[in-house]
């Protein structure tokens, strides 16, 4: 017997469309470009091997985002990477390579948040997805998204006041 075909999707096109966004998303969670690359690579590997079927491009995008976020959560758990840091500790960060200073500031701010708040803050405020879209991507209710955004804003404002 010879296996003649393992079902696969066209990964190249999907990579070109979504890799930057997924990499930024992973970077905002893992705070390290090497780990972010590992996470995104795993997502594309899963995409290639599992060949999930999608209703449309939005469904595909949501799957990729959700899988990336879940992979980041897994990596944070398995590697026992801490979920959040105080702003004092953040100044010690030097994991970002080839990222402009303003971008570094964003990641530093995000890293002070618990990981689930970080996810919705990144998707909504930085990637520009609506509350409804974030809810669909993460398979949570819109009110849960709104609550996490509110809590994320409050935490960030509180932390920034502390620093001042």
């Amino acid at each position: 017997m010879r296996i003649v075909r393992l079902r696969k999707n066209d990964i190249s096109a999907v990579y070109e469309l979504y890799s930057d966004m997924l990499y930024r998303l992973a970077l905002s969670h893992l705070q390290n470009s090497e780990d972010a690359m590992d996470a995104v690579q795993d997502v594309f590997l899963k995409y290639t091997e599992a060949s999930p079927e999608f209703k449309d491009d939005n469904h595909k995008k949501a799957w990729l985002i959700r899988t990336t976020v879940n992979r980041c959560y897994d990596m944070l758990r398995h590697k026992k990477i801490r979920n959040h840091y105080s702003l004092d500790e953040i100044s010690e960060f030097s994991h970002y390579e080839d990222i402009p200073r303003d971008g570094e500031d964003v990641f530093s701010m995000l890293s002070s948040l618990p990981v689930k708040l970080r996810t919705v803050m990144t998707l909504h405020y930085l990637e520009g997805f609506s509350v409804e879209e974030v809810a669909k991507q993460l398979v949570i209710t819109e009110s849960a998204v709104k609550m996490r955004l509110k809590r994320g804003r409050e935490l960030l404002q509180g932390l920034l006041k502390e620093v001042d």
């Binding site: 190249s12 930024r24 690359m37 590997l45 290639t48 990222i99 402009p100 303003d102 971008g103």
Partner: peptide, 28 residues
């Protein structure tokens, strides 16, 4: 929440070429 400079800096981050090679090689 984030100012325009920060948002633009974030949006300008692109996946490294190394990742592209790793992903597309994995496909093979």
């Amino acid at each position: 929440m984030f100012n325009e400079k920060q948002t633009n800096a974030y949006k300008n981050i692109t996946a490294p070429m190394e990742l592209r090679e790793r992903v597309l090689n994995t496909e093979k």
